[in-house]
Design a protein around this nucleic acid. Sequence first.
DNA 1: ATTAGCACTCTCTCCCAAAGAGTGCTAACA
DNA 2: TGTTAGCACTCTTTGGGAGAGAGTGCTAAT
Lengths: 348, 348
Amino acid sequence: MMRVIEMLSERKRAILKAIVSDYIQRAEPVGSRTLARRYNLGISPATIRNEMADLDEMGYLEQPHTSAGRIPSYKGYRYYVDSLMEAEKLSPADEERLSRILQQRLSKIDAVFNEATRVLSEVSQYVSLIMTPIFGQQVFQQLRLVPLDSQFVVVLMVTDTGLVQNRVMEIPSGISAAELDQIADVFTKHLKGMPLENLNSTFLQELYSVFSRRNKALQVFLADLIAGFPYGEGEKVYLGGTTNILRQPEFHDVEKVRSLLQVLEEKDHLCRLLLDMASEDIAIKIGEENRCLQMKDCSIVAASYEINGRRMGTIGVLGPTRMDYARVVSVVEYMQKLLSKTLGEFLF
Amino acid sequence: MMRVIEMLSERKRAILKAIVSDYIQRAEPVGSRTLARRYNLGISPATIRNEMADLDEMGYLEQPHTSAGRIPSYKGYRYYVDSLMEAEKLSPADEERLSRILQQRLSKIDAVFNEATRVLSEVSQYVSLIMTPIFGQQVFQQLRLVPLDSQFVVVLMVTDTGLVQNRVMEIPSGISAAELDQIADVFTKHLKGMPLENLNSTFLQELYSVFSRRNKALQVFLADLIAGFPYGEGEKVYLGGTTNILRQPEFHDVEKVRSLLQVLEEKDHLCRLLLDMASEDIAIKIGEENRCLQMKDCSIVAASYEINGRRMGTIGVLGPTRMDYARVVSVVEYMQKLLSKTLGEFLF
DNA sequence: ATTAGCACTCTCTCCCAAAGAGTGCTAACA
DNA sequence: TGTTAGCACTCTTTGGGAGAGAGTGCTAAT
């Protein structure tokens, strides 16, 4: 996405910056008098008024009603984010809180995501989103069939990033352990190196031909195995800190809260949302830029984490358009690095 | 818990029942005149007023203020639930919607719970809670160590109900495949039949002695294996339909919503809550009966599902104290049976 | 180009009055 | 004696100003 940054006079920039900062902090329309009092701009309220009128006309500011102060428009936020905002250094305390996920040595990958989501929302004070590794982008490594007893077998699928999926299946009578090994070998040999997204069921059908057509039990087992093959295992989205959004004054209306939370309950939707934002290094979507009507008053700051240098999933923070972008960007960046590191150590 | 049901005259029962039903339906204090108009009780408002005054004094009813109608008190709801409420038959449409979870033939157990949670909240129109099988109550069956290559091994733990946990570990150099098999055999032999809750790390330490003290690599591997042993793998709680609570008029206050949602975000807390309710067949906790202050205006209807006749986890529906108990009880009972059946087929 | 002054606009809060709903009590009634 | 009609009273809710407060746009002076 190419964005042209309009030229604004240094003074207009200073005023716009002051307005956005002030509004982010106080959530109230800011007027010329207050602005002059609070920020040392060296100009009088009247001058500020004139500049504000200009910025208003240019579309950077809005007025809730004629005689209220100004608030940033979508365009105003965008300009702020693109060219006014100053990077904020995280406090050591926050860094330490975030780092806890790394220190705990959690045994399950699920626990890592859970903890990361919790901490991310806690530190950012907004809603946190974490999408698990994009399954389809991983590469098939091997299939294992581990018989538990004469009746059941565990199907293990291992990917290049070290994720292991398991599933229990029944063994039709008449299939020997050797045959199971043979099946696993054939799958492994044929599929090794394939991205999981390509493993759709029509492709897998081809493997049928490799096996004897005569063995009925084998055919049944294969059909079952293929039908339940863990391709397309959906991405998961972890969601945390939803209650933080209720602290925001713009969400003091229950109906508004409801419609937003409803969207957040649809994991598929969140998934698509985060997937969209995975391309850039750190992506910021402001208000209407989220296609979704219910999220027109929200912004998302997102970044992708990596495992072994490959982009695997996305983390994000969602808040009102009035969110503290500078701070959130720092938090998200920090968490991004942390998660990449933690998961890198976690898997092989 | 032993509850004594006070004797009330038939007429008082009829009036109380009418009041509770009406209030459940309309969420507004109900007065004598309205009650007489809406229900065919065959008595005048004045008489109803007298009875209401009695019920008020006895603690079954409350008045929001002097000149409003009455609303049920906690005691009123309790009486209603224990002795007035009539079982409600689910509509075929609802039964069908609930049954979908069974029909879909979901491949992962996680997907079953997800879907069940979604449907349960959808049909009940309240918040749904589902707790996964209580891990500690399951019984250890076997441990498997499946080497993936020379460097990594998958640790598989299988329980009697057919749940399989996996975990990837590094193999210290100097441990052979045969040794891995031997380790797995020892674990399996010693632990088979043990409930998982007993497998704490001090118990597992004893297994050390079985192995050669001389092999350093083996010792390291064992320590690692024991440290990461999946005992105490916490129960998970699935939560669905939280937005439904926002539809309830009693939650039109954002602060109230926030404090409730905050509690619902603490999975540990929910877990304990559901665990508490697992003893009875179908348990109903009304308002203050939930110890938690933030839930004093909520009720929970819960039931446990079974796998092979053993109580494994709990499902529940949470709504305002004013919830439609009759309907919710039917829904929960239906889902309980459904889930027991589905999971029974799912596992072995 | 900047600023002070001023009339004007719009919201928010507070207050008060009227309407509405329901109660409790009393007295009449079957 | 239980039931009912009538009535005064209470309490909340709603709607309509009045006044305060904040901010603007415009004009005229610096």
